[in-house]
Simulated assay, not measured.
Amino acid sequence: MLKHRLIHPEISAILARAGHHAKVLIADGNYPASTKRGPNAELVCLNLAPGLVTVAQVLETLLTAIPVDNVNTMGIPADDPYAKYGEPPAWDDYRQIVQAAALPVSLTPIDKWQFYEAVNSPDHVLTIQTGDQALWANVLLTLGCRVD
């Protein structure tokens, strides 16, 4: 019986095989998950309906089950029309989730194109596609080491 909140069998199996430095993408509903993923990444679709499930819900659940060294968001290029609005509201939610999980990391945006490159890495093991409708809501986790 599992003690953490993650009960999805396929996601659990992929994470159990993953090691230090493995990357997990939690993708919003706008992310091109069928074409932008690493050569070793498996795709699990949790996009039940628009808004279901959200990146924040998946992030909160995953953090009960895995150690994380880095939490990256897709940074907004300065020439993108959305850039004039500042950080997306979802990022504050992610910071609160990371803080509540007592992780000694901070949310770090990386440039959109570098984000795609990071996802294209052979270390990318899993994309979880959500139905999140928030813009710029993608989160890339880099797994850490289990210390207990």
Rank of each mutant, 00 (worst) to 15 (best):
G131E: 06
L126W: 11
D111C: 05
V125D: 11
D69G: 11
L48H: 15
L141F: 12
L140F: 13
P89C: 06
Y116R: 02
V105S: 10
A90L: 13
P67D: 01
Y94P: 04
E60G: 15
V105P: 07
E10A: 13
A101F: 04
A56R: 11
V55E: 04
Y82V: 00
H21D: 08
H8L: 12
H8P: 10
A78L: 03
I110M: 04
W91P: 08
G51L: 14
G75E: 03
H4P: 11
G29L: 06
D111E: 13
G86S: 09
I26C: 13
L103A: 12
V53E: 09
V68F: 03
N47Q: 01
I7Y: 08
Y116D: 12
L63Y: 01
P77Q: 08
V98F: 05
W113Y: 08
V53N: 14
N30Q: 08
N138F: 00
H4R: 06
R5V: 06
Q99K: 15
L140P: 08
A18H: 02
V44G: 02
E60Y: 07
I14R: 02
A22G: 10
P109G: 02
E42A: 14
D69E: 13
L107M: 15
I14W: 02
H20S: 11
R95W: 01
D92Y: 12
Q129M: 01
L63K: 09
I110S: 06
S12E: 03
G29I: 04
S121V: 05
G131T: 06
T35N: 02
H124I: 07
L59T: 11
A56W: 07
I66D: 04
N70Y: 14
C45L: 00
T54L: 07
N120Q: 09
K84V: 13
D111S: 09
A134D: 14
L6I: 03
V71N: 03
Y94F: 07
W91F: 12
I11N: 00
I76W: 10
L43Q: 00
L52G: 12
I7C: 10
S121K: 01
T61Q: 05
Y31F: 15
P9A: 10
L103V: 10
S121W: 05
A33M: 01
P77C: 11
H21R: 11
V125F: 06
Y82T: 08
P89W: 05
L141N: 13
D80S: 13
Q99H: 15
W113P: 03
T142V: 15
R95G: 05
T130E: 02
R146H: 14
H4V: 11
P88L: 06
L25V: 15
E10K: 08
A65K: 05
M1P: 10
S34D: 02
Q129F: 00
L140E: 10
Q129S: 00
G38E: 09
L46D: 02
L15H: 12
S12F: 04
Q129V: 04
E117R: 10
Y94T: 06
